[in-house]
Design a binder for these strands. Structure first.
Lengths: 118, 118
DNA sequence: CAGGATCCTGTCCGATACTG
DNA sequence: CAGTATCGGACAGGATCCTG
């Protein structure tokens, strides 16, 4: 086996949590999940409109990653013009709970820090 | 930190959860937290030894970020030679629960995927 | 409408060398 | 021992143009 990269690094990137974390951390990833959850299934253009400043490339990239991780579902209608609708999968919903836990934590800490610094 | 990025991005990086997520996603971040939790407070050198392949610079960088976020505590003894010990703060412990939740999810999905693909 | 291809850019990471 | 300083390279992300 040719092994040019360092074995140690594979160790920690192979960790399922780490890859999930790495997926979530993308600049717009949580936004996408948030939009799909709060506004229900949406089409590509709607998502893009809801995220001012994102490029097609990055949005597509993120959507593919989320799809690959089984967090969202891609529904492709080969009409003319084509219509693609994205929605959350059960896994996406499961993930929601953890994300909200993280969010609560972050917000609480943030609030605490405000009080301390004031 | 220099602030040359576009205003639109500040919108989503200003979200407390996003910054926390961004912090956690660093290449070695979860490792550090994991080590400090499973092996208790450790010194700089011990941490480094436990993470083969990491450079001083990156380790210091990550430690400073974690310290700045209030997740770890830095105890500096100005002896000769100096001794610096890092430990988890209460916040670090709190974060642990969420991380484990995420980890459980990731592992379960991973296991499920294995069954499906087999 | 929903992306693919391409180029360019900054950022961040790791290696090496040096210091109080 | 516990860092800092500096440099180069890889890669991620953005802008733009183009297509089924």
């Amino acid at each position: 086996m040719t092994r040019t990269t360092k074995p140690q690094n594979e160790n920690h990137t192979a960790c399922p949590m780490d890859s999930l974390l790495k997926l979530l951390m993308g600049p717009w990833t949580t936004y996408i999940l948030w939009l799909l959850r709060s506004q229900g299934p949406q089409r590509y253009g709607e998502l893009k409109a809801g995220m001012p400043g994102i490029s097609s490339k990055v949005l597509t990239e993120r959507l593919r990653m989320l799809e690959g991780a089984g967090l969202i579902h891609r529904d492709y209608k080969p009409t003319v013009p084509p219509a693609v609708t994205y929605s959350l999968t059960p896994r996406g919903a499961e993930l929601k709970d953890v994300l909200e836990g993280l969010n609560d934590l972050a917000q609480r800490w943030h609030a605490e820090d405000m009080r301390v610094e004031a």
